[in-house]
């Protein structure tokens, strides 16, 4: 009897372990199949003229040049606002604020802001920048909406980076007679530079792929005057918005080719940002550990 019970338990164990292996294999096959399919279908769509020419709304043969430009332009603008703002709030919370009502209100606001779905943030951007400020669809409105969307995440990463700087470094600097602000500028921020840079690159990947918040803020068209327009108040359709728009609303006859090409460019950028973040992390780790 006891023998059979032990056999049953061992069989149960084997079956369960096999199930775990199978679910892992299923997910691996899924990932490889999806990414492989994406690259295989996208590679045939890619060409130099596709990457550089202007889109064609109605006929065939349109490219994604201005969309790639706008994606990087909005990415740059968004980082320009997000990084200093996140650093400032994180510095205030980590280095200055006393625990209390004010600090927890700021923390709570950040957590609440982090949960806002991106389409809801897009509607807020529409209200503020299009309805109230009357900018119409603009690169600046889109970038500011993305700033609000990504500020909480960037802030949390900055807080963690600052938190990891050892207190003894601050004390040493203060003991040498440096003021608190000088200590922050010359000791704390340089000490946190490695995780900070990794965080910025990771958030850059998120900004690059964001779509829902941009449809009603940066718009679904490129600037009429000049497709490669640095103007802050011109519409700026990004690559991810373009991928959606060609399928949801557009009438381009070669939508399939545009979609495949745009998707593979987007995924390639995400991979590049991820690898870059890892490389930067390793580079700083090697430098600071002295090996």
């Amino acid at each position: 009897m006891e023998y059979f019970l032990r056999r049953r338990r061992q069989w149960g164990n084997l079956v369960a372990l096999a199930c775990f292996w199978m679910s892992a294999i299923l997910v691996m096959v899924l990932i490889v199949a999806l990414l492989g399919w994406l690259v295989w279908s996208g590679a045939s769509a890619l060409s130099w003229s596709f990457l550089t020419s202007v889109p064609n709304e109605t006929g065939a043969g349109g490219g994604i040049g201005p969309e790639i430009f706008n994606s990087f332009y909005l990415l740059f603008l968004t980082l320009f606002f997000t990084v200093p703002l996140a650093l400032a709030v994180a510095l205030y919370l980590e280095e200055y604020a006393q625990p209390g009502i004010v600090a927890s209100a700021i923390q709570l606001a950040a957590e609440a802001l982090a949960t806002v779905p991106s389409i809801v943030m897009g509607l807020f951007g529409l209200l503020v920048f299009v309805f109230v400020l009357r900018w119409r669809f603009s690169a600046l409105g889109g970038a500011l909406t993305l700033t609000l969307l990504n500020l909480p995440t960037m802030m949390r990463m900055t807080q963690q980076a600052l938190h990891a700087v050892p207190g003894s470094l601050r004390e040493a600097s203060l003991a040498l007679g440096a003021t608190k602000w000088r200590t922050i500028i010359h000791v704390v921020i340089p000490g946190a530079i490695a995780p900070l840079t990794t965080g910025i690159v990771l958030i850059a990947g998120r900004i690059f792929g964001e779509t829902a918040a941009l449809i009603y803020t940066a718009g679904v068209s490129v600037s009429n005057a000049n497709p490669y327009d640095f103007g802050l108040f011109h519409p700026a359709e990004t690559l991810s918005v373009h991928l959606w728009y060609t399928h949801a609303e557009g009438v381009a006859v070669d939508a399939q080719r545009i979609g495949s090409g745009s998707a593979v460019v987007l995924v390639a950028m995400v991979v590049i940002f991820n690898v870059l973040a890892r490389l930067i992390g390793n580079f700083f780790r090697r430098r600071t550990s002295g090996r």
Binding site: L38, L202, G205, G209, E210, W244, H247, A263, V270
Partner: peptide
């Protein structure tokens, strides 16, 4: 990190 439109595109 893969953008949601790419998931939508794969779904389509």
């Amino acid at each position: 990190g893969i953008p949601s439109v790419v998931y939508g595109w794969l779904g389509l």
